[in-house]
């Protein structure tokens, strides 16, 4: 029974949300007691306290559902969690590349369209290429043309035509 309860999603989530509600309640009460305004009707922490109580009540209902369903089999929801983690790792690397690497900003104008080469273009091309390769694209033509066309399109479209800044 104990083992079943540990693997019950509703119980796990119920505990998580109960903790979250408790933390929010404590934050609201503590912050209100430290604030200059002691009138609850005008307090900035009234709404957080109400939402915390609501979340706590909902978490208890989820726990009750979990206890009732403790003997039921959890639906098997297979999937490729490892692939998701790898993709998250790649997007994190892409994000860090955009945030950290500073490349010189090169621009060339072709038929009144300005083509730019900077961190965004290089990082995006590399990211698209690596992610497509990881997701199973094997055609060299596709691996080269899609990242290149997408990067050029986004660069010209956003920087030149829409005048939207890119990372």
């Amino acid at each position: 029974m104990k083992q079943k309860c540990l693997h019950n999603h509703s119980l796990q989530e119920g505990v998580l949300f109960l903790l979250l509600g408790g933390a929010l309640l404590r934050y609201g009460l503590d912050s209100h007691s430290k604030s200059f305004n002691k009138d609850w009707t005008q307090s900035a922490y009234l709404f957080p306290v109400i939402v915390a109580l609501l979340l706590g009540a909902l978490a208890v209902m989820l726990l009750v559902q979990g206890v009732r369903a403790a003997d039921e089999k959890q639906a098997a929801r297979g999937g490729e969690a490892r692939r998701v983690l790898v993709v998250l790792g790649m997007t994190l690397a892409y994000y860090l590349a955009l945030a950290v690497i500073r490349m010189p900003y090169l621009a060339a104008t072709v038929f009144s369209l300005t083509l730019t080469l900077s961190t965004f273009e290089v990082a995006t091309f590399a990211f698209l290429l690596v992610l497509m390769l990881y997701l199973g694209v094997r055609s060299r033509k596709v691996l080269l043309t899609v990242p290149l066309a997408t990067t050029v399109f986004l660069s010209v479209m956003f920087r030149t035509l829409l005048r939207v800044l890119l990372p």
Partner: peptide
């Protein structure tokens, strides 16, 4: 092919 483009 679509998902990497959507991510960008």
């Amino acid at each position: 092919i679509l998902l990497p483009i959507v991510t960008v």
